[in-house]
Design a protein around this nucleic acid. Structure first.
Lengths: 370, 370
DNA sequence: CTTTGTTTGTTGATTGTTTCAACAAACAAT
DNA sequence: ATTGTTTGTTGAAACAATCAACAAACAAAG
């Protein structure tokens, strides 16, 4: 996969085409003028670029409901022609699948509970869904973003280590590409959450801290375990650290005094227990939050699923701005789709050996060819 | 200062001129071909760009000692024409001044101990030095980078809050520009340290954690205090957080149990005391380091000044790669110079209201005009 | 219904950057 | 002297972005 790509300088000259596509994707219905202002380009530059994109078929015009204000020519809205992709959360006990547009709208949700940890079952389930969904929605799916627990190298598509899924040192993206027949990007689950929030919360400047509380079934004990993963957003992009281990706590949720933090079976827990749990957790997290100085703390996963349980504790303990994630339990799956979209619509600087560094052109053309 | 600058899109087209200048700065003696490879440009593009730069007088050629290997035309080295700038560390009790080239070599060091906390004394001292140094070295100083403790907004040149220097909410860079007559950039001291390490350690990929231990004289108690500041390097650039408070610990050096961490008068301390101090410090820092996943931890300030005292403790406590800073006590001052150089040789994306967003052309021309 | 003013979008000429391909220069080894 | 190799240059061509003038589309006032 990922053909030769000429040389080093992928397509420096097409940066503004790429930025335009990304803008149209994230703000469907923008006019040429608005786009020009947003991108800092001349009106005529946008006319040229949009003409190219219209001709290539990736962009379409749409009638806008009404004129903007007082007089003047009615602007013409721009939107992507409909492309769909999968956003998937892969945990040891379940798979959550969403079908999304490139703009991030989810048109389909499905959770599948699984019994084995194997990749074969995962592949089978996803393959089935691709077939069903392409029929049901009459579309070609152009790719999939997959969020999974553990240390993931999303640029090369390698799982460095995932204990819940019992995988280590595996070029998973390539394997899935061959098995599924569509481009695949993989990323850590908490980071997927973070990618989703980047797209969701444009009102913020680009420094977020996304905390994901997730149940895992640990292979050794065959028992429920909890893990807190953090997605760090720095300057509008997810921070991976030097070993793709950023956001991981020293001992999973372990406190300094060795007391276990596991809070089994969240249903039927008292708010006192939740408070105690959160107190221990956030006492070791306080310096982290302080040092990272995020604009806002976003809590997802089981934090937001059991929000009634956690809310009083969090209100008491957190001094900085914070909020629950807004997408129910689908943050990771939908975030994985956001990650996929964001990646192919952002030219990856000089990141030579990344997957799909040809950007959206490579991926969307691929869709048509298969 | 900082003239109109036409509009939004400063000079998108001159990115590669800028990148070329930065490369010549950081790798004096590069040939055109090497530069072309490093920047991902065509050979002829570099010929064009270098011709411009030669004509404008900012770059000069130099004879290289010998040919590279087996045959072929001897490459011509490129270097910047000599420009000097000041790198300054401003603490409550002393000022450290260095004179550096734009490539980061320091040609002069001087520490001045001060009695008052006031800006007037600082200005007087620096002004004197500018005069003396320009005579002594027969050069024009083209700017100054200044590192100081507290929360600093380097983009706008504002001190948000500096308790050691008793300053808050002050546009310091502008004030100093008018007082000193040269372009001034200010930045947090730990962050200056980090900027210096970015330039120094090119062997690393861009995720460092720089820890600076510094004495301060706190105005209230008129007593010695210590503070640990962290400079976070993410993807090759210093991370500032959302309120320019990144790298600050909750209560300055305070541990969870409220025990004071202050270790007065580092001379005549035992290694047991140092171990105890470090143990408390790093127990709250462990999650921070783990979550940031840096390639290496770099310890500076009084850590490296009293390295004999701290080394055994650090060897015992730190499991990740770490090292002492290599520049003695001059990390902050020289790092401030690196910060200045790095800033003017890097076109600041779309950071509209930053100082000197005209880049090196604005600053270096300014030097000639005054 | 016409006029005026406003905003959106287009057009063609122009500028500037980058590349390509061919060539010249400089050097080592045979 | 010849050959091969590497560095650097040149002019034509491709391309992207801008500017200024213009056309299109619309609202509101007369």
């Amino acid at each position: 996969m990922a053909e030769s790509m000429t040389a080093n300088k992928v397509q420096e000259g097409k940066i503004n085409r790429c930025r335009t596509m990304d803008l149209i994707r994230t703000r469907p219905g923008v006019s040429r003028i608005e786009a020009a202002e947003a991108l800092g380009l001349n009106r005529s530059t946008l006319t040229h670029i949009v003409n190219d994109l219209l001709a290539s078929g990736f962009v379409a015009e749409e009638q806008l409901p009404s004129a903007s204000g007082r007089g003047g020519r009615r602007p013409i809205g721009l939107k992507l022609t409909p492309f769909y992709l999968l956003g998937i959360e892969w945990q040891s006990r379940f798979i959550r699948i969403t079908l999304c547009t490139l703009s991030g709208e989810a048109v389909y949700h499905k959770q599948v509970d699984t019994v084995s940890y194997g990749r074969s079952e995962f592949i089978r389930v996803v393959k089935e869904h691709i077939e069903i969904l392409e029929k049901k929605f009459g579309c070609r799916i152009c790719g999939a973003g997959i969020g999974l627990p553990g240390r993931i190298n999303p640029h090369r598509g390698i799982v460095i280590e995932s204990r819940p899924l019992e995988i280590s040192s595996l070029p998973l993206a390539e394997e899935l590409y061959e098995a599924l027949g569509i481009p695949v990007l993989i990323e850590n689950d908490a980071n997927c959450f973070a990618w989703g929030e980047i797209e969701e919360r444009k009102e913020f400047g680009g420094n977020l801290l996304c905390m994901l509380l997730e149940f895992h079934s640990s292979p050794e004990s065959r028992n429920w375990d909890q893990e807190v993963g953090m997605g760090i957003v720095s300057r509008g992009s997810v921070y991976h650290g030097s070993n793709y281990a950023a956001g991981e706590l020293p001992a999973a949720g372990g406190s300094a005094d060795g007391r276990s933090l596991v809070l089994r079976n969240l249903k039927d827990r008292s708010s006192e227990e939740a408070l105690e749990y959160c107190r221990t957790l956030f006492s070791s997290l306080e310096p982290v939050i302080s040092v990272l100085d995020p604009e806002i703390l976003i809590l997802g996963g089981d934090f937001s699923f059991h929000r009634a349980l956690f809310e009083p504790a969090l209100k008491e303990l957190l001094s900085r701005p914070w909020t629950f994630s807004g997408k129910g339990v689908w943050e990771v799956a939908r975030g994985a789709a956001s990650f996929f979209a964001k990646t192919i619509f952002t030219l990856p600087g000089f990141n030579d050996d990344a997957l799909y560094r040809g950007g959206w052109e490579e991926v969307l053309h691929h869709k048509e060819e298969r």
